[in-house]
Simulated scan of single mutants.
Amino acid sequence: MKRVCFLLKVRQERLAEYRERHAAVWPEMQAALTATGWHNYSLFLRDDGLLVGYLETEDFERARAAMDRTEVNARWQKEMAGCFEELDGAAPDAAMVPLSEVFHLA
């Protein structure tokens, strides 16, 4: 299993909405994430909007592509896109650029 971490930036004026939406992620969205290989997935949000995502998966690009083919992900991404800064027209999940892991304590 590979560990993947990424950063995004949530708009300051949408922080409350972002938190509310993620307190009640649609069951079909959660099921799709699991079915497409996203495991131990967490999001951490700082008060200035910095969002840190972490997940474990066998193949991140394959898991992301599988989610991209789901109808529920298309709906979720469309609804969430306005919450983020600096996407340059990309969907939020397409803007997830994995960080390089430099240390891991097993």
Rank of each mutant, 00 (worst) to 15 (best):
Y18W: 14
V52P: 09
A16Y: 03
Y18R: 00
Q30D: 08
L33K: 11
V72C: 13
R64E: 02
L51V: 02
E79P: 05
T57E: 03
A16Q: 09
E61L: 13
A32L: 05
L50V: 03
L55T: 11
A32E: 09
Q12E: 15
K9M: 06
P27K: 03
E13R: 06
E58N: 12
E56N: 06
T70R: 13
W26C: 00
D59Q: 07
M29F: 10
E28Q: 07
Y54W: 05
V52K: 07
T36L: 02
G49A: 05
Y18D: 01
V25Q: 13
A24Q: 15
H22Q: 04
T34W: 00
A23L: 14
R11D: 07
L50S: 09
E61S: 14
M67N: 09
H39F: 11
L51Q: 05
R11S: 12
L45Y: 13
E28Y: 01
A24G: 11
R46K: 09
D47C: 06
A63F: 01
R46P: 03
D48Q: 07
E28S: 06
R21A: 13
V10A: 10
D88S: 03
V10I: 11
G53A: 13
C83V: 09
G82Q: 08
D68L: 04
E28N: 05
W26S: 10
W26N: 00
D59I: 02
W76M: 01
A66D: 01
E61Y: 14
R62I: 02
D59G: 02
C83S: 14
G49Y: 03
K9F: 11
G82F: 00
M67F: 04
D88N: 10
E71M: 06
G49E: 01
M67R: 12
S42D: 12
R21N: 11
N40R: 07
G82H: 02
L45F: 10
E17T: 08
E28L: 02
F84G: 03
G82W: 00
A35T: 00
W76F: 13
L87V: 04
R75P: 05
S42Y: 09
R14Y: 02
